[in-house]
């Protein structure tokens, strides 16, 4: 599904945001991408939706080499993906269902199919009854669900989420994360960059940790912190977290 090989990213001046990174993710996997601020999580995700080209190395997504993709082919790639951000990125003057439909409008979908697909996507995130609401009438968690519905409406093979719970309270975060987990269970590959220690520890998925652009850990069924750190052993799921202090 995803292959990242010897990838280095250097922004216009400045140190390496990613340094010789190697990573493989299989179809239907759920992966947490963790690391401190500036460690390169967003950079790695940007590579996957071809918002960024690596300075060195190669990136494959769904059997396509993104480093040789032409400008015209980028939209076609993006239609196979869904991307979700911390700030939801909804259009403020469109209703919830119009925001979801927007992803279909811009690729010229059939109007009859469109309505059906939008309703199905809203049902998946559990917000059919809020379809006519404007974004400002929705809670943060609901807005994030709408943005997930928009990412899902095209039946993507890969869903990328950059700190999807960054602005949410713990309960909403859990709801959103559970939704992403269900999506992965249905066969869509899901990669989530996050700071959310509780979520990572709670779901115990594959965890890829970045430090200064280097992948320092890639572990199945793991927690937020490295196993060597005593905090993990002490607080696997919830409660007082010593490592944070």
């Amino acid at each position: 599904m995803i292959v990242i090989r010897d990838v280095t990213v250097r922004y216009h001046r400045g140190p390496e945001a990613l340094a010789r990174a190697n990573l493989q993710i299989r179809r239907g996997e759920f992966v947490f991408l963790v690391g401190t601020s500036g460690s390169g999580k967003s950079t790695l995700l940007k590579l996957l939706y071809r918002d960024l080209l690596p300075t060195e190395g190669r990136v494959w997504v769904n059997d396509q080499d993104l480093t040789t993709l032409s400008r015209r082919e980028i939209p076609l790639l993006r239609r196979q993906l869904g991307v979700v951000f911390q700030d939801y990125r909804l259009l403020p003057y469109k209703t919830a269902s119009e925001n979801v439909a927007f992803a279909l409008e811009v690729i010229g979908d059939e109007p009859r199919q469109m309505h059906r697909k939008v309703m199905r996507a809203l049902a998946r995130v559990g917000l059919q009854q809020r379809q006519g609401a404007m974004p400002h009438e929705l809670s943060g968690g609901e807005q994030q669900r709408i943005s997930i519905a928009r990412a899902l409406v095209n039946d993507p093979v890969l869903l990328l989420a950059d700190e999807p719970t960054g602005n949410l309270d713990p309960d909403s975060s859990l709801g959103v994360m559970q939704l992403l987990d269900e999506i992965a269970a249905s066969g869509t590959t899901v990669v989530v960059a996050t700071h959310d220690r509780h979520m990572v520890d709670h779901f115990r998925k594959r965890v890829v940790e970045l430090v200064d652009g280097r992948i320092v850990r890639d572990e199945e069924l793991a927690g937020y912190a490295r196993p060597s750190e005593p905090a993990v052993a002490a607080a696997p799921v919830e409660g007082v977290d010593l490592a944070e202090a």
Binding site: Y49, R71, R72, P75, L76, L77, R78, R79, V83, R89, L91, F102, A103, V106, I107, G108, R150, N154
Partner: peptide, 17 residues
Amino acid sequence: RREIRIMQLVGATDGFI
């Protein structure tokens, strides 16, 4: 610009935008 970014994200072609 935000709207354009969203369009690009969901796979709109340059021509469409």
